[in-house]
Amino acid sequence: MLAATRAAARARKLPISARALSSSSKRQSDALFVHRDTDYNNSKIPFAFTEENMKKAKEVISHYPPQYKKAAIIPLLDLGQRQNKGWTSISVMNYVAQLVEVPPMRVYEVATFYTMFNREPIGQNFVQVCTTTPCMLRGAYEILDTVKSHLGGIKVGDTTKDGKFTLVEVECLGACSSAPMMAVNDDFYEDLTPETTRKVLDVFKSGSKPKVGPQAGRHTVENSAGLTSLTSKPYGPGEHCTPEFQ
């Protein structure tokens, strides 16, 4: 029975990431939730905010009452991650803890809870492909496979050898109306097809930045088939009014 199902699945050419056997997926995070000292990530590597970031940090901290400085942990970690080439090293966390005067563990807790804090180094371009339901229905796995093969056959979570790309699979980023989408660094690339995906990646590869937003000719999320309603010229002020009001 099982073999027959599998054969049928093969015949239908399911996407590679189809889940064949276990009743539910083996849910395991790609990240470790403990810290291991390495030569690139240990508490002896110094980290401090640049002057400019320090100014921003102070501004953030000033938003909260002095005894609730810890409320600034997330924005400060974000600031630190940006300064630290897109990832939050143990030094960044320790530094933030020192800044908001909490035991370092309170910061580790936050940094491990939120998946957008990368606790391992990433490539220059952080490719985040959304595979949540709407994107999946619109072919997100195809996009994911395209990215994988186009970046030289890397797997999810890997960084390319040249250090230019890191690929991760993420949950909904809130651009469902222009699914499928991926985010590279801070920008969204929507309405993707395998071709446009390759194009976007190629532009990044060449060192420049592609046009942000939908890649299928739309400006934002307007109807791709053109306007279907409100097509006539909108009437101006006073139109259809009695003459004294015109």
Binding site: S29, H35, M105
Partner: peptide
């Protein structure tokens, strides 16, 4: 403290 979230949550000190 606790590190990670959901199914991956664990108790520990994060650093050794």
């Amino acid at each position: 403290g606790t590190t990670g979230r959901g199914n991956d949550m664990q108790i520990g000190m994060y650093v050794e």
